[in-house]
Design a protein around this nucleic acid. Sequence first.
DNA 1: TTGACGGACTTACGGCGTAAGTCTAACGTT
DNA 2: AACGTTAGACTTACGCCGTAAGTCCGTCAA
Lengths: 228, 228
Amino acid sequence: MGERSTGRRTGARRAPLSRERVVTTAMALADEKGAGGVTMRAIGARLGVEAMSLYNHVGGREDILDGMVDAVFGEIDLPAPTADWREAMRDRAASSRAALRRHPWAVGLMDSRSTPGPATLRHHDAVLGALRAGGFSIVMAAHAFSVIDSYLYGFVLQELSLPFTDRAELDEIADDILRDLPSDTFPHLTELITEHALRPGYDYADEFEFGLSLILGALSPAGGRDDG
Amino acid sequence: MGERSTGRRTGARRAPLSRERVVTTAMALADEKGAGGVTMRAIGARLGVEAMSLYNHVGGREDILDGMVDAVFGEIDLPAPTADWREAMRDRAASSRAALRRHPWAVGLMDSRSTPGPATLRHHDAVLGALRAGGFSIVMAAHAFSVIDSYLYGFVLQELSLPFTDRAELDEIADDILRDLPSDTFPHLTELITEHALRPGYDYADEFEFGLSLILGALSPAGGRDDG
DNA sequence: TTGACGGACTTACGGCGTAAGTCTAACGTT
DNA sequence: AACGTTAGACTTACGCCGTAAGTCCGTCAA
């Protein structure tokens, strides 16, 4: 049993594991192979370690997923408390959307996770702080937080579940749908596709701005629909 | 090998399988045990059949999940084309939210599914039709559809990922958070919890109405922020 | 009576998360 | 230098999972 050594010498140790390294590796794996690629064995392989060794540093798979979601919140720029709450919200929305698009698995993970991590809590606290600094009462800040975040997450969710990723795929899918349907089965859908989505400059991502402006424009610290 | 019979007699046949029966059973399973409970073996067991028999009627697990999502869309009341587009949108939002809460696994499934089924297409067509009937142009209808649905899905997503389900759990979680934190680590979060969420009548579900009214109020066929 | 065939059946494979137990190299103490 | 402790890796094993492949039987048309 002399060949039991795995090849490493006493001097050439591998970097020590840690919860953070495990979570980071899991994120890289998810970015590359999708949420389904995150398995204990795959993470271990990346780190040059057996799956079971991970249990010395994390509580299990669920713990890793929690860590991943929290890490995504950690990547979002915190809004500063400023009088211009609209700009603060706009910046935060852009930063959040960028993070969620960078890690497309994050939205899907969010709805099954219920214990927020420290970065998540810090993020939420900063958003509330920015709204309070903008003159919102506690109740109105809660309202504003809820609308903005709902819109943000919902938009990204839809954006990510579109059956196409670039223009070529859009054209292909549109053709498929139009060919299958007798053209008047779903007249408004057909209309939308032919006269809007297939037009040269169309990009669903552009819709984000419209909705965000609509919401931010309608919100005000006073609670009504006038400008604050 | 006489005992090979599984007990059924020639006369007492079991109801024949079908894609629809498989999907319906899968939904019941998901409603009861969560999305994780939907396995080929579990569905088969419910139907008194081995897992592999399901493959005679569905394309595989993914096909079943597609069918489940489409079935949820099928449960949503279709908006009628009417001049009062705001009421139509309000009714549809309520019906959608009810369906998504009845089947909490649906939102989580949506983001991994990219081929919409017939009920989904019909639903989308009806919503577009209601907006067009309300006077929206194609482009504005696309805008309106996007904001409303983003808000809707995002709200439900947040609602479902709350770490509590009823008042007692809220109190417990709130206590946990407040106890763990040195009270000024996340001052605005602390403030929100103690002075708002722990108040007697608080219920996060109430936030839905605020955001929906804000969005519907700000929308108009003309595209501006005035009333249509 | 016979032949075809739809649909349920069994078996098997590779992969999953993780419970349980083992082995080893480094460290603090003597 | 010798020794016990211990952290953190390791192996093994269990019961799940989705599904590819092949078998077997009851029904029905001819």
